[in-house]
Design a protein around this nucleic acid. Structure first.
Lengths: 178, 178
DNA sequence: AATGAATATATCAAAACGATATATGGAGAA
DNA sequence: TTCTCCATATATCGTTTTGATATATTCATT
């Protein structure tokens, strides 16, 4: 585990809160961190296996509601590894922003199409923000002050984006930028 | 090219501005879009080869300053493909934000370490913003109004992040959040 | 003449994605 | 009751992407 910008630590982090299955990890991520850090089944399950072999996690096969489950928990070694990671300074942010990539080339598109796409994008951002607020009101149990702040970042980031594209749209409509 | 959230279109986009080599594409990306959409040599060169076979780009072997270069240019087919992509609505943003991921778990870290990491992160963001402003004053030739706006987004996004973490830091210092 | 930086192409192992296969339990409808 | 659909749960697989490195050449500096 030489590179500390991998899916390994989000998994260790989930298990540091509670022992859980790969499916639980995926669900926890999707309702809490997916906006700023996501992971797929295709990385979660192989990584759990790899970390079990490395002695960072242990699996206990359990039956819950009559359904088979493999509950993973941190070992002492795993918790040590996670805490060491937690103290390190963070890596720079990595973004794939498809809208901005397209914007970079929009000179080649007729003005009215740019306006339409931008307006639609603003509506989509507003819809995503609403979704996030629904998650906020539905959940609540797991939220300590730090976790709550990551959720607040999500909302603030949507507000930033919505405001930014609204300003752009108005400028394009009024053609005040040269 | 079924999935339109791949490296293919950023390459077609670069070539839509000017014919250039894989090395040129990498450099153009790193000084213009890397903040919101990056690509590595390991994806650029194989993709150029794949798209040449598919007839979307053509290579011309040239000698520039006595140095061998493979200049790629869009074919009519390639430009058609790119323009079709450009009209589509964008995919949602994808982020890997290591700082926020760590924040999600910071309850497990002593308060003073959280404060120190957050303060250091703010300084790093300010340094990155300065770097971006240096790129801005160095370049200028390629900047049409849309391209300039993507650069402005970068600066605005740094301002948003700096402000956000400064607010967080003050709240943590004063412990006004429950 | 030597060194090192920038230019330029290319490849490879490891990681991650995205989609899908498989299977079961539970809820509600027909 | 049985059928269907959805949520739960684990797992895999081809493709894509990353990150690092290998190789080679030119140019400017020492």
């Amino acid at each position: 585990m030489n590179n500390n910008f991998t899916v390994d630590y989000i998994i260790l982090g989930c298990l540091s809160i509670n022992p859980m299955s790969g499916y639980d990890i995926k669900r926890l991520i999707s309702i809490s961190t997916s906006l700023f850090y996501n992971a797929s089944y295709g990385s979660i399950y192989p990584t759990l296996k790899k970390m079990e072999e490395a002695g960072l996690v242990e699996a206990e096969e359990a039956v819950e509601n009559g359904r088979f489950k493999k509950i993973y928990a941190l070992t002492d070694e795993g918790r040590k590894e996670f805490m060491a990671w937690l103290e390190e300074p963070p890596h720079p942010i990595v973004i794939k922003n498809d809208m901005l990539l397209r914007l970079f080339f929009y000179r080649q598109l007729p003005r009215e199409k740019v306006l339409a796409i931008t307006a639609a994008h603003i509506e989509q951002l507003k819809a995503f923000k609403l979704e996030l607020e629904e998650i906020e009101s539905a959940e609540g149990g797991w939220a300590d002050k730090y976790q709550y702040n990551t959720l607040r970042w999500g909302k603030d980031f949507y507000d930033f984006q919505i405001g930014w594209y609204e300003k752009l749209l108005h400028e394009l409509e009024n053609e005040t930028i040269k």
